[in-house]
Write a protein that binds this DNA or RNA. Sequence first.
DNA 1: AGGAAGATCTACT
DNA 2: GTAGATCTTCCTA
Length: 193
Amino acid sequence: MEPLPRSFYERSPDEVAIDLLGKVLVRRLDDKILSGKIVETEAYFGKDDPASRAASGKKKFNLAMWEEVGKAFIYMVHNNWLFNVVAHEPGKVGAVLIRAVQPLEGVEVMKVNRGVDNIKNLTNGPGKLSKAFSITKELNLVDVTDPKSPLLIVEGKKESFEIGKSKRIGVSRDLDVPMRFFIIGNEFVSRKC
DNA sequence: AGGAAGATCTACT
DNA sequence: GTAGATCTTCCTA
């Protein structure tokens, strides 16, 4: 399956966040392939967004948000690695947080990584999916549009679904605009709403 | 050195 | 469904 082209990420983060729903996240380990359908995302902007890691200016750890679009941006919060994809219009700053996926391949490996048996509890949250997919800082800045990369995003099956919107979760200072997007009715979305 | 951080788990009302 | 304790890095002073 072909990775999404870099141009896919060269748009406003909220558009990219919506279009990423239904796409497939693929993690390539030494001998195993893990994959999952993206069911929940959030958009983050640059300095106009108080919740964004980019809000306080360019730092070492958030350099990725200024980088070329289509790269992974990974950072730690509360003992959890959170996985983002850099996405923004040319000359701007932004990223899309992947909040939840639905496991497709490699479910057994994910169970071992997470230490739980319940499928629905494997990847239904940003920190959980990182553990399940063994995503750590090592993967910061990998190119998710490169077929050879250990972490990439590919086109999913054609299917129709309804897209729900809400405010972002756990953010101390959110914008007034809904910036969280999810597939309505999917069991793996982190919270109902 | 001190504190904040986009979360998770567990234990309840 | 909500509430509280607690986890590890990185930033700021």
